[in-house]
C-alpha cells in the first residue's frame, strides 16, 4: 500500500514534532495508557442543580492499548464503556484521570495540541445510520478529516478517498453516492474509511458491529483484523458481545457499573475467569448449539444493575453476587492479581 505523504500539518504546528510521533511503529509499543479515568455527569439544569449526586458513569478506569493489538472492553449497557471511549477522544471532559498517548496526557492538552493528536486517534461509532451526515456524499464524508487538517489538495484527496474505499472493500464509484444508498454494513465501511483517512495509530471502536446483521458482522470484524495486520493499528474495541470481543481481542477488560472488575489476556478472561461477574456473563452467552445449551449450567444473576447515581458501597457487584460477605460492603476490592495470574477486583475470586 503506497501512502504518499500528503502535506503534513499546515496548521501552524511544529512539523518536526508530528514527524516524530509518526515515525517507527514498534509492535507492542504502548500507545495509550489510561490511568484512573473518572467521569461524572452532573444532573439538573443551569438554573437548578438536582439534590441527587452526579451520575458516576466511570469511576477509576485503567486501560492500556498497544500498537498492533486489540484491547477489548466488554460490559452490559450502562456500565460506562462508551463513556470511556468518548472521554478518551475528548468528546466528554474527564472529571479526573490521565490518558497518556506517546507519553503525553491527552486530558491536559491545549486545544491546538489536541487537534494534532486527533489525527492519530480516531473513533468508529456504533450506529452506521446516524454516524454519517445524510446530506454529504461518501467523497465528502471520507475526505472531511483531510479537509479539517488541511492535508493535500483537491486531487490528492480524491486519490486518497479512492484508495481508502478500496481498503475497506468498497468501489471507487461509491464516492459519489449518499449514505442512504448503502446497507448498514457498507455504511460502517464508510465510517471506517473516514477513521483511516489520516492514517491513525489508534482506533477507538465503540460497538462497531452491534447494529449489523450476523453475516455482515463477520465481514466487518474481518475487515478490522485485516487493517490491523496491514498497518499495525491499535484498537480499543468496545462491545457487549463477548464472542466478538473474544474473536478480535488480545487483551480483555470487563466493566461493571463504572469499574473494571477483571482484566487480562483473552485466555485469562475466557478460560480462567475468576470474577463472579465475568463468570456470570460468560455463562449467559447463548451458543448456537442446542446440545451444549441444554447441558449448560447457567449462573442466573438476581435483580437489576443498581443506579450509577447511588452505586453500592465497597464492591459494586455485591448486591447481585452470590459470594457477597460483609467485607464486600465495607471495602472496595482493588484490581490486583490475587493468584489467578491476572488482575481481579474481587475479595473472593476463584
Amino acid at each position: 500500500m503506497s501512502e504518499q505523504p500528503l502535506n503534513p500539518a499546515d496548521d501552524g504546528e511544529d512539523p518536526g514534532e508530528l514527524a516524530e510521533h509518526r515515525s517507527g511503529v514498534d509492535d507492542d509499543e504502548l500507545l495509550l495508557d489510561v490511568r484512573g479515568l473518572v467521569k461524572e455527569f452532573p444532573q439538573g439544569s443551569v438554573w437548578q442543580r438536582r439534590r441527587t449526586g452526579p451520575v458516576q458513569a466511570v469511576s477509576g478506569v485503567d486501560l492500556e492499548v498497544r500498537a498492533g493489538q486489540t484491547h477489548g472492553l466488554v460490559g452490559e449497557s450502562g456500565c460506562g464503556k462508551s463513556t470511556v471511549a468518548r472521554t478518551i477522544v475528548r468528546l466528554e471532559r474527564p472529571t479526573a484521570g490521565q490518558a497518556f498517548y506517546n507519553g503525553r496526557d491527552l486530558f491536559a492538552m491545549s486545544k491546538s495540541e489536541l487537534r494534532l493528536v486527533r489525527r492519530d486517534i480516531q473513533i468508529v461509532f456504533q450506529d452506521p445510520f446516524s454516524s454519517l451526515n445524510p446530506r454529504m456524499n461518501v467523497q465528502a464524508i471520507i475526505e472531511e478529516p483531510l479537509v479539517i487538517h488541511g492535508v493535500g489538495d483537491k486531487a490528492d484527496r480524491k486519490d486518497k478517498v479512492i484508495d481508502l474505499l478500496d481498503r475497506v472493500g468498497l468501489n471507487p464509484e461509491h464516492a459519489t453516492r449518499y449514505p442512504h444508498q448503502f446497507s448498514g454494513g457498507q455504511r460502517q465501511r464508510v465510517g471506517i474509511a473516514r477513521a483511516l483517512a489520516l492514517d491513525p495509530k489508534l482506533i477507538i471502536a465503540d460497538e462497531p458491529v452491534s447494529a449489523l446483521d450476523v453475516s455482515i458482522q463477520a465481514q466487518v470484524v474481518n475487515l478490522f483484523r485485516e487493517l490491523q495486520a496491514d498497518t499495525g493499528l491499535g484498537y480499543l474495541f468496545i462491545a457487549h458481545d463477548l464472542a466478538i470481543v473474544r474473536n478480535i481481542s488480545d487483551d480483555v477488560s470487563v466493566m461493571y457499573l463504572g469499574r473494571i472488575v477483571e482484566t487480562g489476556s483473552r485466555d485469562d478472561i475466557f478460560e480462567r475467569a475468576s470474577h463472579p461477574y465475568t463468570q456470570a456473563l460468560l455463562s449467559a452467552v447463548p451458543e448456537p448449539d442446542p446440545v451444549t445449551e441444554r447441558e449448560r449450567e447457567r449462573i442466573v444473576l438476581e435483580g437489576d444493575v443498581p443506579s450509577p447515581v447511588d452505586p453500592p458501597s465497597g464492591c459494586r457487584f455485591r448486591t447481585r453476587c452470590w459470594k457477597a460477605e460483609p467485607k464486600c460492603r465495607e471495602e472496595v476490592p482493588e484490581l490486583v492479581d490475587r493468584g489467578a495470574g491476572h488482575p481481579v477486583a474481587c475479595h473472593f475470586p476463584d
Binding site: 489536541l114 487537534r115 480516531q122 456504533q126 479539517i148
Partner: peptide
Amino acid sequence: LEYVQAARALGASDGR
C-alpha cells in the same frame, strides 16, 4: 447525532 460527534472527534471547528 453521531455524525456531529464524529466531526467533533476529528477536530472540526465549531463553525464547520
